[in-house]
């Protein structure tokens, strides 16, 4: 700080004007502060850093696979070759019972598996955040009502419900997404609520209330930015769990037959005799893909949570 401030009024003004002209001479127009960045990766040292990087690398790989399957897949997914073929140069992972190339199937299945995971997680995070924020911020009767509702949702068993729904409706991934999304927001809501309760006592929220900011504005600009660091890892972990749910439901035969996800591939390998004939190239790749994808997302999620913990520590130190 090169500028002195004199508490003597005239002196203070002088100093201020000095600063003013200084800025002007630079010719720059008053720099508006840029938006806070939420990019929270940080170079960890040791094992954690390695795991983090592996997670990010795998995740990027899978996202690319989902976005541009044709780059990874040598053939179209519905193209037919000789069935039950072992891996060869032509078909790196062999073929299945109806002669589809498994590598191509795998690449195209990534999109469906990940869509289900992300959409379900997005729905659940959005609902959970909105309800948690409202409950925590307004408190009182609304809080009681919303949290009561959360408890009710918490006791609904997900998988049996989907099985029942699958029996009555035509199974489709959209129903799957909406059920997974609509029924898994309660933990997000609880976490958001507790954090909001804590934040609404903070000085800046109180002073914003006193200055006459609207509740919506306070929630949006004061509380939400301070909980996003918790929500993001929550979102990642929700994605992972939705993908696993999808795979297990597909395996049970409740998946969408027209959308061949990794779970569906496993299911077919099981029902069409891939396991009995010990055709590892058929049932192993989708399983490994599911595991690796969930693992990568979880690794990122854990990394973010650890980062959040560190941030919290820093905050405690500065206080």
């Amino acid at each position: 700080m090169n500028q002195f401030d004199c508490t003597d009024n005239s002196c203070m003004k002088e100093a201020g004007i000095e600063g003013f002209s200084e800025k002007k001479s630079e010719g720059s127009n008053f720099e508006f502060p840029e938006e806070t960045s939420y990019w929270i990766f940080q170079k960890h040292k040791g094992f954690q850093g390695l795991f983090n990087r592996i997670g990010v690398f795998l995740f990027i790989l899978f996202v690319l696979m989902a976005l541009f399957p044709s780059v990874f897949a040598p053939y179209a997914p519905e193209e037919r070759f000789i069935p039950y073929e072992a891996p060869s140069e032509e078909h790196l992972l062999g073929t299945n019972d109806i002669g589809n190339d498994i590598l191509s199937e795998l690449a195209f299945g990534a999109r469906i598996s990940m869509t289900v995971g992300f959409m379900a997680a997005l729905i659940s995070t959005l609902i959970g955040t909105a309800l948690g924020l409202c409950a925590g911020y307004f408190r009182g009767a609304l809080d009681e009502l919303l949290m009561g509702f959360t408890d009710v949702v918490l006791v609904i068993p997900k998988i049996p419900l989907i099985i029942v729904m699958g029996a009555f409706l035509r199974p489709s991934i959209w129903i799957l997404i909406s059920i997974l999304g609509l029924l898994s927001w309660e933990s997000t809501a609880r976490v958001t609520r507790s954090k909001t309760l804590q934040l609404r006592g903070a000085g800046y929220v109180k002073s914003a209330q006193c200055m006459g900011f609207s509740s919506y504005h306070i929630m949006k600009s004061d509380i939400f930015p301070n909980i996003i660091h918790i929500l993001f890892p929550k979102f990642m972990l929700a994605t992972a769990s939705a993908m696993i749910s999808e795979a297990s439901l597909s395996f049970l035969g409740l998946g969408d037959l027209s959308m061949k996800s990794w779970g569906m591939m496993l299911s077919f390998a099981f029902s069409q005799g891939g396991f009995i004939r010990d055709m590892w190239w058929w049932y192993m790749p989708p399983g490994i893909c599911i595991t690796l994808c969930v693992l990568s997302i979880a690794l990122i999620g854990f990394g973010l949570e650890a980062k959040e913990g560190e941030h919290f520590k820093e905050g405690a130190n500065t206080l």
């Binding site: 508006f32 502060p33 840029e34 806070t36 903070a202 000085g203 800046y204 002073s207 600009s221 004061d222 930015p225 301070n226 905050g315 500065t318 206080l319």
Partner: peptide, 11 residues
């Protein structure tokens, strides 16, 4: 120290 949102710049 609590009067300002810690995630926002003063500006």
């Amino acid at each position: 120290t609590g009067a300002f949102n810690p995630r926002k710049r003063i500006g």
